[in-house]
Design a protein around this nucleic acid. Structure first.
Length: 827
DNA sequence: GCAAGGTC
């Protein structure tokens, strides 16, 4: 038997398909897919199936000095037991094995990990094949001429693993211990996350230090025949054109001059045509950036891309490549779209071009092809709105890369009036080119009419505008990812996760991300004592070292030993400052959680966490002062800059994904509840018989409202109500439940007829079930709705469902897929 | 429980 090992299941399936010419069948072993035909078996890993770690005796953070981790042994342990088991079971029966993991450095390391697992059980020959896209030609060529594993390249990857673990773990533990933050809220640092955080912190420092400057600009309307255009005053500033006037008197003088006349003479006209080249193929970063201008976060864009990839509609979303592979036939791919109602016309018009030549980016790599649609088209109804929008983006980007350039006509007009100069720049799209199929990049025109030199034109409405220079803008997520890429921080697969990690660690909040006080303190501490870990130099150096290892110019030990020595020096410096650093971090943590003065004792009120894990506001004077205020039960609290005028308390926002909301001032919310009375609306369905319980609209001190039983806590029956808006109890009654229908914000433009609270809750639960299913990996919006319609309307229902029955009832869902979801649920 | 890198 001959065993083939790929990096992921998807690649295993497609390679089996190609090599077996479609005759391969799939079977499951230990929950892992194995594809077989003849004497061949193909199994897909799940990336790294082993991971580096320290031996267990280093597990207790309090028992081990962080500095000890520098020279601690680093071991490798299986992290995906069933895949490792399956791989070794198959290897025992194999006469030979072929490693077919991705064609990049991590792929080589993952391949070497598989090799070592195989070697634990057998000494059959192991070879390596490399291909950069899973196409018939590439795969066949690669398997016809197998190569060897590149152990040096794999060792380069191992050096990275060891250095990242040792630096990350030792410094993370040091900071966490010094600030006494050992629970979930430890203080982390790392080679990628910390320089990324420093980018954000440095920008925030610039913004804070920014001193705005006043300047003035002057505009006027100029009319030719019936068409008016805007012209802007400019002057000569040492040989270059300047529009901003920095001196108020000078601005007033120019303004007065221009206002004194009502005509301007054209003194210059210049026409130019400019070619606007179509965009290059999508790599991961460019894709995230384009999706972000459609309003998707980096994380969301990648998760939708993952779905579209798994469903077979687009290529692998994690790639650095911006050059299509040679065997991509652009016209054939366009052909696949001709019959589509959404893309047919555009595909046809592109096919009419004389020559179909795709653009190329600067980055040509071996990892994967650039992101493009496969020829398989999804029915629109099968995708959720978001999925469709992202799919359309990917299709149109491919269209754009094979479309013609656009042509713009630029018209520059210069006028003189009262000895002052004005200018206007017009642009007109003469040939739309790729813009016709790619509406995402701006193609806005600015009309300036045809004028001739010497012409006198009417001028009106001269305006003097006073402005101020603006601080630099914060990084948005996609700009941050672009900057990370340019500095070599992270990889195509991890950059968006690194940003997500900064949110989870309480280092940044909001979007565009802003650093917390804690983040400022962590970066400051690192700059002072471990500058390497917040600098992109560490990555640059590591890249060089890895190249040396890969080229055989250095060994793994050379590089890791040197790195350990450097870290040892960092710790020598840190030793004396442990307490100072800890204090500074603790103060910053407190600043991020401080709301305002305690009305009882004058100390400060802080966001705290109870032993049960729920959040509340408590006095820093505890246990002397036991004043508390409740917070809503959903989400993680975030202290906002806004302050309540009555109580000098910062407002609180509750972060809960799509259910995020602003809670406001916790004292105001509590007082509102204290002042409001319960409003009885009908009988309690649980206990009216025989106990006489009734349902009432209640306001809780945590700011939420609900319909609950008057016998609470003896009866815990309750229904949710929206957090905001006036509630009107109408005279209409629900026949099923003997309750009045409710209307939210009856006097607003858009009142919400919530109806009977019981009926409303039942509908809500149904909708929620769909969302719950969607949150499970690999279930798209459309699939979730189909499952819900088939009676799989909650995670519990999915867990207990019979996979074969579900597969039979829901089109497009296979039994094995259902079993995968169930396995995931169990985990 | 620490990192970053794969993968879902």
């Amino acid at each position: 038997m001959e065993l083939i090992i790929t990096e992921k299941d998807n690649a295993a399936r497609r390679i089996a398909e190609i090599l077996s010419e479609g005759s391969a069948s799939a079977e499951r072993a230990n929950g892992v897919n194995v594809y077989r035909w003849g004497t061949k078996r193909v199994v897909g890993l799940s990336g790294h199936v082993v991971g580096v770690d320290f031996p267990p005796e280093y597990n207790d953070w309090r028992d081990v000095e962080p500095v000890e981790l520098i020279d601690a042994e680093v071991t490798k342990e299986a992290t995906q037991e069933n895949i490792v088991t399956t791989l070794q079971q198959l290897a025992r029966k194999a006469e030979s094995a072929i490693i077919a993991t991705d064609y990049d450095r991590e792929g080589e390391l993952i391949g070497k990990e598989a090799y070592e697992l195989i070697r634990e059980v057998t000494d059959v020959p192991v070879s390596r094949v490399r291909f950069s896209s899973i196409t018939e030609r590439e795969v066949r060529e690669a398997f016809a001429d197998p190569d060897e594993i590149d152990f040096d390249l794999a060792a380069a990857g191992e050096a990275r693993q060891i250095i990242d673990l040792v630096w990350g773990a030792a410094l993370t533990r040091f900071l966490s211990l010094s600030a006494r933050q050992l629970g979930d809220d430890f203080i982390s640092v790392g080679r990628v996350q910390s320089p990324t955080l420093k980018l954000i912190v440095d920008r925030e420092r610039e913004i804070q230090a920014f001193d705005p400057e006043d300047y003035w600009e002057i505009f006027a309307d100029i009319t030719k025949d019936d068409s008016a255009f805007e012209a802007q005053y400019f002057y000569d500033d040492d040989g270059s054109e300047a529009e901003r006037v920095w001196d108020e008197d000078a601005a007033d003088a120019a303004y007065a001059d221009l206002r004194s006349v009502d005509a301007a003479t054209v003194t210059g006209v210049r026409r130019r045509t400019r070619t606007d080249s179509p965009p290059t193929p999508f790599n991961t970063t460019a894709f995230i950036s384009a999706a972000s201008s459609l309003g998707y976060s980096a994380q969301r864009a990648m998760s939708i891309a993952e779905e579209l990839y798994t469903a077979g509609y687009m290529t692998y979303p994690r790639t650095d490549n911006t050059v299509y592979p040679e065997d991509l036939e652009e016209d054939e791919l366009l052909d696949a779209f001709v019959s589509s109602p959404d893309f047919g016309e555009d595909a046809e018009s592109l096919l009419e071009q004389d020559d179909i030549v795709a653009t190329e980016g600067d980055e040509e790599t071996t990892d994967h092809p650039p992101i493009h649609p496969t020829g398989e088209l999804p029915p629109k109804s099968e995708l959720s709105e978001d999925e469709w929008e992202v799919y359309e983006l990917v299709v149109r980007r491919f269209f754009a890369t094979v479309a013609e350039a656009a042509t713009w006509e630029r018209l520059r007009v210069v006028c003189e009036a009262a000895g002052r100069s004005l200018k206007a720049n017009g642009k007109r799209l003469v040939e739309p080119g790729y813009h016709a199929v790619y509406p995402y990049s701006s193609a806005s025109e600015n009309h300036v009419p045809d004028v001739e030199e010497g012409e006198e034109l009417a001028m009106s409405d001269v305006r003097l505008e006073d402005k101020q220079t603006q601080p630099p803008r914060r990084y948005g997520q996609s700009r941050l990812i672009e900057t990370m890429e340019s500095k070599g921080l992270g990889t195509k697969s991890t950059r968006h996760n690194s940003i997500e990690k900064l949110y989870e660690r309480g280092y940044i909040e909001s979007d565009p991300p802003r650093p917390t006080t804690l983040a400022m303190a962590v970066v400051e501490a690192a700059e002072e004592f471990a500058d390497r870990v917040v600098s992109d130099d560490m990555t640059a150096q590591l890249e060089q070292d890895m190249t040396r290892i890969a080229n055989g110019e250095a060994t793994l030990d050379d590089v890791t030993d040197e790195s350990r020595e450097m870290l040892q020096k960092v710790f020598d410096e840190l030793a004396d400052s442990r307490e100072d650093i800890g204090e500074h971090l603790q103060e910053s943590l407190k600043a991020d959680k401080t709301l305002g003065p305690c009305p009882v004792c004058g100390e400060v009120m802080l966001v705290r966490r109870s032993r049960q894990g729920s959040y509340f506001v408590g006095c820093d004077g505890f246990p002397d002062c036991r004043n508390t205020l409740p917070l809503p039960s959903t989400g993680e609290p975030l202290v906002l800059d806004d302050e309540c005028e009555d109580h000098e308390m910062h407002h609180v926002k509750m972060l809960a994904g799509r259910d995020t909301f602003v809670h406001g001032c916790p004292r105001c919310e509590a007082e509102k509840a204290d002042e409001s009375d319960d409003e009885v609306i009908g009988p309690c369905p649980d206990c009216h018989e025989p106990d006489g319980g009734e349902l009432a609209i209640k306001h809780l001190r945590s700011g939420s409202r609900l319909v609950g039983c008057t016998r609470y806590p003896d009866c815990e029956y309750s229904l949710p109500l929206p957090r905001n808006g006036d509630i009107e109890v109408t005279d209409e009654f629900c026949e099923d439940h003997d309750l009045p229908e409710l209307v939210i914000d009856p006097d607003s433009d858009d009142p919400w007829e919530l109806g009977c609270p019981i009926c409303n809750f039942e509908e809500y639960r149904e909708r929620n079930a769909v969302e719950e299913l969607e949150d499970l990996n690999g279930i798209g919006g459309a699939t979730a709705e189909k499952l819900e319609a088939a009676g799989v309307d909650s995670l519990d229902a999915l867990r207990e469902a019979d996979a074969d029955v579900v597969a039979a009832e829901v089109q497009g869902v296979s039994a094995s897929q259902v079993r995968d979801w169930q396995t995931e649920l169990e985990a």
